[in-house]
Simulated assay, not measured.
Amino acid sequence: MRRALFLLKFTTMMIGTVCPASGVFAGAQPVLWSALRPADQSRLDAALPGMASSRPQGETLAWRDEARTVELTGFILPVDQDGENVYEFMLVPWAGACSHSAAPPPNQLVHVVAAEPFHLSRVYEVVTVTGNLRPGLDKTQLFIMDGVRVLDYGYSMSQAQVAKATGFVDPDLKTVSPLGVLAR
């Protein structure tokens, strides 16, 4: 019995605990979008790939700590949904990415598979996803307003906890947006 209790406590400590109030893992490290790209890749490079710089940096993945449970806040772009329930989506750093503006570079796109369906109450909902962020370039197909689009992404998160964003906001969510870039 004592050994079982120890193993339960140890496992809980290692993978995090679910906080009933927020639905996210306690002890998860908040991560900014800037941590996913090289330090010398500016926000403008990320917002307008190929236009702001001649250096192709979008495939350079800066995050490598797969073992750490993290929280990342961004906007949902549904990949698989049934009505208002979203099962799989791309997490993007600004509203309208991919549908109203150029797709972010791969190091600014996260493919998320939710542990439970997320009820999407509005377009461009801001959410916080919690889980283990895995680097690795891949592709997914996405249906948007004007047809099908193939997106290259640099990170993925499976069995992610998804919750409406509250409190913590990444500075990139405010400044790296189609309108924010034009206002510079």
Rank of each mutant, 00 (worst) to 15 (best):
G27P: 10
D45T: 02
S101M: 02
Y87N: 14
R149E: 15
R64K: 11
E66D: 07
D40F: 00
T130A: 10
S42K: 01
Q41S: 05
I15K: 08
D40R: 00
A95R: 11
A95P: 11
G58L: 08
F6I: 13
L32H: 11
E125C: 09
S121W: 08
R64C: 07
M13N: 05
E59V: 01
A35T: 05
N132G: 06
A26K: 12
R134T: 13
Q161A: 12
L142V: 15
T11V: 11
V150D: 07
S34I: 01
T130M: 05
A103F: 02
S53M: 01
A62W: 00
R55Q: 15
L142Q: 03
G50T: 07
R134I: 13
A46N: 04
H100R: 13
R122Q: 14
A46I: 04
G23V: 03
E88K: 14
D80G: 02
F6R: 12
A115L: 07
A163K: 14
C19P: 00
L151T: 06
A95Q: 15
L7H: 06
C19I: 02
S42Q: 07
D170H: 04
T175Y: 05
R134Q: 14
N85W: 06
R2D: 09
A52E: 15
L133I: 07
V79F: 01
R134D: 08
S34M: 07
D65F: 01
E125R: 14
L61Y: 02
